[in-house]
């Protein structure tokens, strides 16, 4: 690897270091160097959202971020959703609603939906559809995904009240 840069970052709460060439995308660095293959490569050009992660809490396509840009930042991937072996309410409801078939788009949808619910704990259907417009699914037809997000939002609001 010529001209590799050492990048120190935090991924899902853990300090991580990786070395990558400066033209490598964060998506490739996360998959091939950090081993987080929940970050999926769909289009590689920002259209499909399969590689969605958050960078300092901001939802982004990791294919449109350079690996070197992660220096000193906080990255969250789908691998960070489950806590202590407990699935996130979004993951539970995606299973419950069968909101997936082949599963390639699912990590991106989960990360994007989590970002939405952090900003807006009670989104209506239109808000969900707009917020997930950057995530493409070619199997389920979106309806089950929207319902799963609504159900998870409800679960999360309930859990908060408790």
């Amino acid at each position: 690897m010529s001209n590799a840069t050492l990048v120190s970052t935090v991924v899902n709460g853990d300090a991580v270091q990786f070395a990558c060439p400066s033209d490598e995308s964060l998506m490739t660095a996360l998959r091939d160097r950090v081993g987080l293959t929940g970050v999926k490569e769909g289009c590689g050009t920002g259209d499909c959202g399969a590689c969605s992660v958050t960078l300092d809490g901001q939802l982004v396509c990791s294919c449109l971020v350079l690996g070197v840009e992660a220096e000193g930042r906080n990255v969250e991937t789908v691998e960070g959703l489950a806590q202590d072996g407990q699935l996130h309410p979004l993951q539970e409801q995606f299973i419950e609603h069968a909101a997936l078939q082949c599963g390639i788009c699912t990590p991106g949808f989960l990360v994007a939906a989590k970002a939405l619910l952090e900003r807006n704990p009670n989104p209506n259907e239109t808000e969900i559809r707009y917020a997930l417009a950057g995530n493409l699914c070619r199997c389920t037809g979106y309806d089950k995904i929207v319902r799963a997000v609504q159900a998870a939002a409800k679960d999360m609001r309930k859990a908060k009240r408790r």
Binding site: G46, G49, L59, N135
Partner: peptide
């Protein structure tokens, strides 16, 4: 411009 993912950048 683009999706929420694009808006963040």
């Amino acid at each position: 411009i683009g999706s929420d993912q694009i808006q963040g950048r």
